[in-house]
Design a protein around this nucleic acid. Structure first.
Length: 235
DNA sequence: GTCCAGGGCCGTT
DNA sequence: AACGGCCATGGA
């Protein structure tokens, strides 16, 4: 049976993983420093590009130690200082440029005001994000969904792998997969609830793929084995 | 020691 | 349009 139903998959994964707190932010830091917590998500989205989150956490801690986790501080920091603080995230020279570029953009065009930034029509905002050097579709969509709370489904390497293995009948490119997920999920959900489903489902897929649907799959005890062709082929 | 992680860009076919 | 090389650290 090809073309697995996304709603079925979501139901199964929700049963297993309950409610995930996927993109934690340090609320206390931002309350104390009167900084915008959404910028921590923007920063994390860039730092985690092809990088383990554990390495990103170290960088975020360093930025917080030095009270630099805000747009203005990033702009004011010397590039060398900044790249040293985010060293643990890897690709630190590029990521320094990328953090500075998006910070400059939000500063120049929105006066460093993320309320203004995110109040823009999110489809236009997506195009705008993609025009920045170093912001590709996944980073843009992570920012839109997790910081902006916009109804945008985030696709990543794990989502692609899941689609190939189950399989889900869709072209394996970012936009096709995203469209398919958004179309299917918005049949059942809407508004705030849809946003929460996008949030949870993406998080579930990442956790699930790390645990079971790895490059070398661990199919024993996989919660999706009953509907996965890949598993059944192996057996 | 090797592999790879919550990508994206740029140059070559 | 598709593909390969490149960017770099730290944990498994």
């Amino acid at each position: 049976m090809r073309n697995k139903n996304l709603l079925d998959i979501y139901t199964i994964l929700t049963k297993k993983y309950k409610s995930l707190n996927w993109w934690p932010i340090d609320k206390k830091y931002h309350e104390k420093n009167k900084t915008d917590p959404r910028f921590e998500i923007i920063t994390g989205a860039i730092l985690t590009q092809n990088t383990a989150w554990s390495n990103v956490e170290k960088s975020l801690e360093k930025l917080k130690e030095k009270n630099k986790l805000d747009i203005n501080s990033i702009i004011q920091s010397k590039p060398k200082e900044l790249s040293e603080m985010i060293r643990s995230s890897g690709f630190f020279n590029q990521k320094t440029d990328r953090l500075r570029e998006i910070s400059m953009h939000i500063s120049n065009k929105y006066n460093q005001d993320l309320d203004k930034f995110f109040s823009k029509d999110f489809k236009k905002l997506r195009t705008e994000l993609l025009s920045l050097n170093g912001i590709g579709p996944e980073t843009a969509d992570s920012i839109l969904l997790y910081a902006g709370e916009k109804p945008v489904f985030v696709v990543d390497a794990y989502t692609k792998r899941l689609c190939q293995r189950l399989p889900i009948d869709v072209e394996i490119d970012y936009d096709s997969i995203q469209k398919h997920f958004e179309k299917e999920l918005s049949k059942k959900y809407s508004g705030e609830e849809l946003i929460e489903v996008y949030n949870q489902f993406h998080a579930q897929i990442v956790i699930f793929a790390k645990e079971f649907c790895r490059k070398k799959p661990v199919c024993s005890n996989c919660p999706l084995s009953s509907i996965c062709d890949y598993t059944n082929k192996l057996l």
